[in-house]
């Protein structure tokens, strides 16, 4: 207001200034995450997928509490019942409520999927970070080891591990998936670390005397995180599928604990007579995998600075 008055009275007088005008930042302050979120919001399919996944998580957590049944007790009055008002998804051949079993099974499947993705990623990132940062002999030896490990087909390796560790519980599956899964992410992390390592801010930190641990954990790995998140999201569906497959062939979670793979496995035997028992868990497995894949795609686009500019 003041300025307006001054300019009307003395338009050609020297402008009074503090000297910092030209350094002023007019653009609103944005953080990296805010920026990513803004880009992500524009990708509708990814956003819808995220919402669906959120609903699924809520149902997995609270679904079993919504009716009076639990996942193991049998209701002999309603064996192989189709979906009804009492049993929303129907019951299986032993008269167990499928609604409850689908959500409890979902808990197991999702828990395995998330943990069996996160652990290998964390291990892989650290391994890849070390290998990429130190380079030379360390890198050569680590990468050759990974090459050899990756040469063994993962499924055979998984089955072997489960047989050795004893099948039937969740931790066995997670350990098996972790041991077979970290190599891929180690390779990915190493590739990215090699790229970031050449950037000048890493050199600057080195010339300030930073220790390797500081450089790896403060500069290199955080900068790979964005892409790694995409990797995690895209790996989860693969683990869900692998778990379903292992349960299907009887190496998964032991009954009566359900998982999605197990439900499908049991239902497959009676598929011709009671298709709903098979279709319902299948649909949830497919839906979850699809949503994670779409979410991963959306995240990748949102995190890519070239697409965001």
């Amino acid at each position: 207001m003041e300025r307006t008055k001054a300019w009307k009275t003395f338009p050609f007088a020297k402008l009074e200034r503090s000297g910092m005008e030209a350094e002023e930042m007019v653009r609103p302050h944005t953080s990296y995450l805010k920026d990513v979120w803004r880009a992500f919001k524009r990708r509708k399919t990814a956003l819808v997928s995220a919402v669906i996944l959120l609903i699924l998580v809520v149902l997995v957590l609270f679904g079993p509490m919504m009716n009076p049944y639990n996942y193991y007790s049998n209701d002999y009055t309603a064996i192989n019942s189709p979906p009804t008002a009492q049993h929303w998804f129907g019951t299986d051949t032993l008269g167990r409520d499928l609604w409850t079993r689908v959500w409890v099974g979902g808990r197991v499947s999702l828990l395995i999927a998330i943990l069996a993705t996160l652990f290998p990623f964390l291990i892989g990132m650290v391994m890849g970070g070390i290998s990429g940062y130190f380079g030379g002999k360390v890198d050569m030896i680590m990468m050759r080891c990974i090459d050899i490990l990756m040469g063994i087909p993962a499924m055979i390796y998984n089955i072997l591990l489960i047989v050795v560790l004893g099948s039937g519980n969740i931790s066995t599956l997670i350990i098996a998936f972790t041991l077979t899964g970290w190599m891929g992410s180690a390779r990915a992390a190493r590739g990215m670390v090699l790229q970031i390592k050449a950037r000048e801010f890493v050199m600057a930190s080195k010339t300030l005397g930073a220790s390797p641990a500081r450089i790896i954990f403060r500069h290199l790995l955080p900068n790979t995180l964005g892409i790694m998140v995409v990797g995690v999201t895209l790996t989860i569906p693969m683990i869900i599928f692998a778990e379903a497959f292992l349960s299907f062939i009887g190496l998964g979670v032991a009954p009566p604990n359900p998982s999605w793979g197990q439900l499908i496995s049991i239902a497959a035997e009676v598929f011709k007579s009671y298709p709903y028992q098979f279709i319902i868990p299948c649909a949830f497995v497919s839906l979850t995998m699809l949503c994670f894949n779409l979410l991963g795609d959306g995240l990748r686009d949102a995190l890519d600075p070239k697409l965001r500019a």
Binding site: W7, F12, A13, L15
Partner: peptide, 27 residues
């Protein structure tokens, strides 16, 4: 200083914030 952000260019002369000789009217 720095050239202005063309997302919201200054209303007067764009060089005024960096100009030694800027007058009231320039802003």
């Amino acid at each position: 200083g720095t050239p202005p952000d063309l997302l919201c260019p200054p209303e007067g002369c764009a060089f005024a914030p960096r100009c030694k000789h800027a007058m009231n009217i320039c802003a």
